[in-house]
Write a protein that binds this DNA or RNA. Structure first.
Lengths: 354, 354
DNA sequence: TCACATTCTGAATACGTATTCTTGAACGTC
DNA sequence: GACGTTCAAGAATACGTATTCAGAATGTGA
């Protein structure tokens, strides 16, 4: 019985009929058009309120050729999204930003296999007005397509490897300077007096790995003879395994730059296994400044990526591009990182070492 | 120059003109209507391919009165979503589920203040076809409204407090049995031989707190004279503070049921501060079975909520409701939980105690 | 009084699709 | 040869809105 209750929609036509005006006038009232008589306007508004009118977003979208949706496509990592606090942060900040705009967030998870279909569905079918692309791997062919289609998008990530030779092609991007961030992190360890500083990076092909390694190289240049570089998959247990073999190895580092907080926790576990005390036997600096940093009792020194600011810039620009307004500033915005120093990089024998 | 490249849309009318048929026929071909001649159909399809045609989701939505979007509204917690792995999991699983359907996920973050507006925008404006509601607090007036409007939704959470007296009102829900989960967790500690088992719950008004406390009570009934119950806000540091005062208090428990993994990590930190060894001085069992469980070197015993299964049921039902198909099974589905036993609840002196 | 600008509003149209209604032809059947 | 029947496909319409165009009413200046 109750399920038979039919959801009847109040349209502008209904409001028009009830206020003895035309549908066009109702539309104008809604748009705040000044050319409509103040009295008429008030009357119509009153009727709208009385009948609880709400414009239909579907019709409006068709007419205006705008869906009001911003797309965020994330690639499904091997073990689900669970372990990646970066995306939770990102999505959270984006929602936060969009909540003060007329736009909404449409989030999609793709695998390599479904990527093509999702692209079609989201862009060509006009489901979203614009796209936020999060790129970790260099040379993504998607970007070429988006540019070719003149589809509004911004890139969160490093465009260097991607940048089209054609200067005319608009590629707006925002990113941290990961080289600088890597340098900052490693330099902090150098300054703290460590002598055998290593870096545990993610897989080699990933831009963020490469960049931070480069920064690390710069920081230790002249301070340390040979760089100590290891790679591991992202995720806690992979990092732990690698870290165990590092700590049991010949050339044990006394400090480690680790590519993210989850991996750092893996290193922490490995250190316990290998009886290395943090920070005295092994100092750690990592990236992301997630809540994991507080899980370590002495606190994990980590690099804040200022995701909030990244999102502000990225979304702000995307909306301007969508609405065809001029975008101010550089093509590529670099958001500064900040090192949050905590116990994991502050050895108690600091002065002894120095 | 390049920005002037105008995105021209290929419509059914274009395809119709080019294949010398009517627009209606093109639509029929697209729908796979058998009443269209096979030769015509092939010809039209060929033209579609040649011109890279894609139906316009906006127009289709207006016509079919379906947006193809599923809404997920999350309340913004005090410190952002970052600390809540539950939502990251949930969103991730939902996206996963929807990726094999024609639906997409529209995620929205609200505060208490913006809740009303979002409800209007999402539902009344027909932006989404259905809603996944995640309810922690009892008696949410939103549910009444959704029911009154006959809007398709499913509830993830316990409907007991919410359930309308009117049996006819459709309220589909899926949830863990948190009483059972609480009982299971506490019983595990009883069986392990602990004598002074406490529970560190979240804020009192929250259903999940109440239910698990109730389960805890049942488990210790007859085994332990007085229940030891504490409340704290969610989040690592709040839990840590509370845990410190617990461990420094008069009646120190030898085992603690903690409401989620993040709070449990807070307890772990507190234990270090108070020189309590885990699990020998303090055993811990918590909930969510997140990746945080592996951050503790001995492993954190935790209760898997089977979020994947919850999402399967919830989304499966929601889609059937939206498409007006009969929904099978109970109004309220209870997804079982599983205790993942790890080191934090396995004292080395287990047999000594027993 | 007439020409003309101004102010408000209604009629008509378009957005791109799905569907209903109608038509035309081909094909028996009586 | 007149009359259903069936099949394929076109014409027309509707979904709910925004916008363009046109018209009525009023006021203004000569």
């Amino acid at each position: 019985m109750s399920s038979a209750k039919k959801q009847i929609r109040v349209t502008q036509r209904d409001i028009a009929r009830l206020s003895k005006v035309s549908q066009a006038t109702v539309s104008r009232v809604l748009a705040g058009d000044d050319r409509v008589d103040i009295l008429t306007s008030e009357r119509v508004k009153q009727v709208m309120r009385e009948h609880n009118y709400r414009p239909d977003v579907l019709a409006r979208s068709l007419r205006s050729r705008r869906s009001g949706l911003i797309g965020l496509v994330v690639k499904r990592p091997a073990g689900g999204l669970h372990d990646d606090p970066f995306f939770a942060n990102l999505a959270s900040e984006i929602m936060d930003f969009l909540s003060s705009t007329p736009y909404h967030l449409c989030m999609e998870m793709v695998t390599d296999r479904t990527q093509e279909a999702v692209y079609d569905e989201l862009l060509r079918a006009r489901r979203v007005d614009g796209l936020i692309l999060v790129e970790s791997e260099a040379r993504d062919e998607r970007i070429q397509r988006l540019q070719a289609d003149c589809f509004p998008f911004v890139l969160i990530g490093n465009p260097d490897e991607i940048q089209n030779a054609d200067e005319d092609d608009q590629l707006w991007s925002v990113d941290n300077d990961n080289v600088a961030a890597g340098e900052l992190a490693a330099k902090h360890l150098v300054d703290a007096g460590f002598k055998k500083i290593g870096i545990l990076a993610g897989p080699p092909a990933v831009t963020v790995s490469e960049d931070r390694i480069e920064g690390y190289r710069r920081a230790i240049a002249g301070k340390q003879d040979t760089p100590m570089i290891w790679h591991s998959d992202f995720g806690l247990s992979a990092a732990k395994d690698t870290a165990v073999s590092i700590l049991c190895g010949e050339e044990r580092p006394d400090a480690l730059v680790v590519l993210d907080d989850f991996m750092a926790m893996g290193v922490v576990l490995a250190a316990r296994v290998c009886h290395a005390k943090i920070p005295d036997d092994l100092a750690i600096v990592s990236f992301n400044d997630s809540s994991l940093c507080h899980v370590l009792d002495c606190g994990l020194t980590s690099t804040s990526l200022n995701i909030r600011e990244i999102v502000q810039v990225a979304c702000g620009r995307l909306l301007r591009i969508i609405e065809d307004k001029p975008v101010a500033g550089e093509r590529r915005v670099v958001v500064p990182t900040q090192l949050k120093v905590r116990g994991s990089s502050l050895p108690s024998r600091e002065f002894v070492k120095a």
